[in-house]
């Protein structure tokens, strides 16, 4: 790891930005895809009709932002640390679907979300010490 910038260019902040952008894009994609779903068309399985929704285009912009900030993260943080942390999105997407899209979360799924959060805490704990050594 090399000298790392602070403020907006702080890689940990960029990792958070990347995760938030993925979360927002997933929710927008689901909204946009639902609005434009037309299962009567023979090519409906391609999902290409989703491009008619402005929400889908907005989602694509968020995907691009998340990719750029992810590349920036890779410049400073080891992949074996950054990637597990980025999977917080697997807990956030179901939570976001529950809050914003009104989807139901089963008991087992809550357990899975809890497990991901515990795993993240375990991965994230040594980071404070990691930063001190640098």
């Amino acid at each position: 790891m090399r000298d790392r910038p602070s403020g907006f260019t702080n890689p940990w902040l960029q990792l958070a930005l990347s995760v938030v952008c993925v979360l927002v894009s997933e929710l927008l994609l689901k909204r946009g895809a639902s609005q434009t779903a037309d299962l009567t068309k023979s090519w409906s399985w391609t999902g290409i009709s989703g491009l008619a929704s402005p929400l889908v285009w907005l989602a694509i912009i968020f995907v691009i932002i998340s990719f750029v900030s992810w590349l920036y993260v890779l410049k400073y943080i080891p992949l074996s640390v950054a990637f597990p942390l980025s999977r917080v999105v697997d807990a956030l997407v179901p939570l976001g679907s529950w809050i914003f899209l009104g989807e139901k979360i089963s008991y087992l799924r809550w357990c899975g979300i809890a497990l991901v959060v515990v795993g993240l805490a375990v991965v994230a704990r040594p980071i404070g010490r990691l930063e001190e050594r640098l």
Binding site: S80, P84, R87, V116, V118, G119, V123
Partner: peptide, 10 residues
């Protein structure tokens, strides 16, 4: 251990 827990959660 953290990576294992996250995988199990997913």
């Amino acid at each position: 251990v953290g990576a294992l827990l996250i995988s199990a959660g997913i």
